[in-house]
Design a protein around this nucleic acid. Structure first.
Lengths: 337, 337
DNA sequence: TGCAGAAGCGAAAACGTTTCCGGTAACGCT
DNA sequence: AGCGTTACCGGAAACGTTTTCGCTTCTGCA
């Protein structure tokens, strides 16, 4: 069942059917009605490949994610998918390993699938203009910060929170509660990711407060997941663990750390406070609920798509949005007595 | 840069370039070398739309998911994406609301995007042959059970765990620990989903043991998430909550329930045991770690893709896999004294 | 030497759309 | 009556591939 068949059956030309299909004005109501009826009766659906071919572009938008299983990303992905589908586009998703170059991958995808646009979720933040030149379609970086200043604002779009600032606030919160010996639980393998940014917020808060920033206070894990955090924290505690509070760069890692603390006989928050940033749902249900700065994930996904669709449809320029985080007071932070 | 340009530059016909592109045998080494060189130099990438058009099929595989944010699905999705991409296909994902008909949506996608195949994740289990006739491409149902027997095994492929049996085992585990008054925490809105199946396992275990199955023991929530479970459990406890153990149909719901229990002054497992099925990572890190039957999520995703690709590539018939679950003993179950 | 088969290649049709271009008919105006 | 404008429509080219078919040329064998 092709457009030709529809044309034949409804007694009009292919062109007219195409016009109806694309909601163009210059078709009489009579023709339009008839064509629509025939389409309905034969439940005809236009062939996307043919469409894409002649328009030399597809209806696909690519989503490149680092590690889909991070529950924080999950909510963003959901919002992104909703927006893309609602906008009449198709979402094609690919995830990449932490040591892959998402820009290369994105460029590959873009050309192979004739993408209309791209959303890069959770990537590096040291792109250069040369890197970006790989991409020939609009793109939006979500959960991303141009920390190193390698790019000007004109060169890309982004939706994110103020990562460094939020981390800074989190550590300030601990400091305001009297803590001085505050450990940072971070990932160390990928020094170009958002983790690094949050770590810098920690460093800033500590230095500003004039607190010593000795090595054992920085706890590293290579794997950005619960288990890695758990193991790293266990090791740190075995080594003495001389701190009264922990700042974790993600909820997930905080949860891993809390188990380690518990097993080590340290109660949270009595013996050790914990704070993080992300605000995934589950962290509000553990015991004690995690005190954390929540990112507006749904909004982040939604805005990313909005910006991208504007860039695609209205040819609007690059835009940046830094969304606010909100502190969710669980019970994992307590004043140091 | 099209195939025509490549042909012109390398001094052969379009046909020959196409042959090289598709690794066909009847090209001389000489021609092949030259063409490949030209392709390389101009970093030409074939236009997928044109390819799809003439082949009347695309390289896209659809993934239809009910509620992407369920952390249990997340791991499956990750494995599915890996498999699809590794197989040289493209994953296009759509999520649907709990009251949408995934088969309709899948059929729509299939025709619009000329899909090669479909993976249905977490759907209903009362499809009829008529329903399935909507789909003209191979498909695999993941996390699915043909519980009502409306289909014969020949009519579809599936990868899942033995949901009813696993739920049954979970409740048996509670019974073996001396519990009689066992509450079931279930979702009630979608009576055709996997939840229903697990609920039936609960019923079977209770009836078999000859335990009364009074109404207040079955705790319902409409929303399949942590918060819904939390609220439902809070309500149940406010109403008396006369039970010594809870069987939750998912880890997520168990986590919500545990907070409700805690806030109600009931310690887990001292005052109330909790068991579930899913085995998401985080539930092993809460306090107490949840005792739960783990699904092999990565494997489920992987197998789904394997079966699908076999069906697409080798035209192999429908296949079914029921993967084993394994009990992860946390600390949320204790013998009733 | 003659011939069958194979190896290598190219012309052209086909896939199902969109769009450009031009055409007709009807209408209102001077 | 003549003309310009508008509304509506259709033919045909174009998009970039794959594939069918047929044509050479070469090889091996009787």
């Amino acid at each position: 069942m092709t457009i030709k068949d529809i044309a034949r059956i409804s007694g009009v030309s292919i062109t007219t059917v195409s016009r109806v299909l694309n909601n163009r004005p210059d078709v009489s109501d009579e023709s339009r009605r008839k064509v629509l009826e025939v389409i309905e009766n034969n439940n005809y659906i236009p062939n996307n490949s043919a469409r894409d071919l002649v328009k030399t572009k597809s209806d696909a938008i690519g989503l490149v994610v680092r590690g889909v299983s991070n529950p924080f990303y999950t909510d963003i992905i959901r919002a992104v998918e909703s927006g893309i589908t609602a906008g009449g586009y198709t979402m094609v998703m690919q995830q990449i390993g932490s040591n892959e170059d998402e820009l290369k991958r994105a460029a590959m995808m873009e050309r192979e699938k004739r993408l209309r646009g791209l959303i890069l979720l959770g990537g590096r933040f040291d792109y250069t203009p040369t890197d970006l030149a790989l991409l020939n379609v609009p793109f939006v970086c979500c959960s991303f910060s141009n920390h190193y200043g390698t790019l000007t604002e004109k060169e890309y779009s982004s939706v994110s929170i103020a990562d460094k600032e939020t981390a800074y606030q989190a550590v300030r919160h601990l400091i305001a509660n009297g803590h001085r010996r505050i450990a940072a639980l971070i990932t160390c393998t990928d020094d170009r990711s958002i983790s690094q940014l949050r770590y810098e917020g920690y460093v800033q808060a500590m230095e500003e407060a004039g607190f010593p920033l000795e090595d054992p206070l920085v706890i590293c894990t290579d794997t950005y997941n619960i288990q890695g955090a758990y193991q790293a924290m266990t090791r740190a505690l075995d080594d003495g663990g001389n701190f009264t509070a922990v700042f974790a760069i993600s909820d997930n890692m905080a949860i891993g750390a809390m188990r380690a603390l518990r097993e080590n006989g340290r109660a949270v928050p009595e013996d050790c406070s914990v704070i993080a940033v992300d605000g995934i749902e589950v962290s509000d249900y553990i015991d004690p609920p995690l005190t954390t700065f929540c990112q507006p994930m749904e909004e982040m996904g939604r805005h990313s798509v909005e910006i991208l669709l504007d860039m695609i449809g209205k040819h609007s320029g690059n835009r940046h949005e830094t969304l606010p985080t909100v502190l969710r007071q669980g019970g994992s932070v307590r004043p140091l007595v």
